[in-house]
Amino acid sequence: MNREKLLEDVKKLNKLPALPEVVYKIMLLKEEDCSLSALEGVISKDPVITAKLLKIANTVYFNPYGQSVTGLKRAIELIGVRNIFSVVLSIVVTNLFPIEAKTFYRELFWKHSFLCAFISKRLSRFVKGVSDDTAFTTGLLHDIGKLVFYSYFGDSYEKVVELTQKGIPSYLAEMRVFGVSHDEVGSVLLEVWGLPAEVVEAVRFHHTLTDSRNFSELTALVHVSNILTMLSSFSYNSGVLFVVLNDDPGWLRLKDYITDSDYEIHKIFDDVVYAIDIAEIAWSRE
C-alpha cells in the first residue's frame, strides 16, 4: 500500500473505527458549559464508561482521603467536570482498536499515551493560551497513528519495531518501511474525527516540530511531554540514552514561560508516580 492510498483510506475511515456518539455528546455539552447532571445523564447510558470512571475516581490521585465512591455523579465531581471529556475520550479510544498483532503492547501503548497526556496537562498550567484539557487530549492522542498502522498492517509493523530496536526513532522507521509516519497518519484520522485544528496540528508535528510553519506552544508542549515520559517505565526505548533539555527546540520554546523550570521538572518527576498509579488502574487488563 502506498502513501496516498493509505491516507485516502484513513480519510474515508476504511477499516477504521468512528468515534462513538457519547464522545460527541460530551464535546457538545462541553461547549455549552455543561452541568453535572447533564453529564451524568449522557454518561450513565454507557455502563462500560461508568464502571471505568468509578474505578478512576477511586484512585489516590482523585480521591486522596479514600472514601469509597460508588455513584457516577460523585465520580464526575471528583474527576472534575472540566476533565471528564479527556478521561472519557481516553477510555473510549482505548477500546476502539481491537488489535491482535503480536508486536503490539496494548498496556504499554496506553500507559505511555496517558502519561504523556498527564504531563502535557501539568505543563499547560504555565503556558498562556493552552487549556489544560486540550493539552491532555493532544498528549493522549499523539501516537494514535500507530494504531492505524497496526489496524492496516498487523504483523508487518514488525519491521518497524525491528528498526526501532536498532536505535532508529519510530517515525523515521515508519517512513522507511511505509513512506509515511504515524504523526501524519494520526493527524489525518483526528481531522476526520472532528478534533480541533490545534490538536491536529500538534499531533502532526510532535516529532518534527521545527517543520511546522507556526510551531505552536501546544506542539512544543506535547513534544516535551513525550520526552519526559522517559522518566517512567512507560516509554519506548528507541536507542536514545538521554535528552539534554536545553538543547531541545521544544523545551526552548516553553522554558521562558516557566519561572523556575528546573524545580518544576523535579516536581513533575514526583507527580509521575501518581500518574503511573492511575494508568495501572485504568489500563490494566481486567
Binding site: N237, F242, I265
Partner: peptide, 12 residues
C-alpha cells in the same frame, strides 16, 4: 543542564 533519561534526571 538537566538531562532526561530512563534512570531519571541526570546532570550534564
Amino acid at each position: 543542564a538537566i538531562a532526561i533519561t530512563m534512570g531519571g534526571i541526570i546532570y550534564v
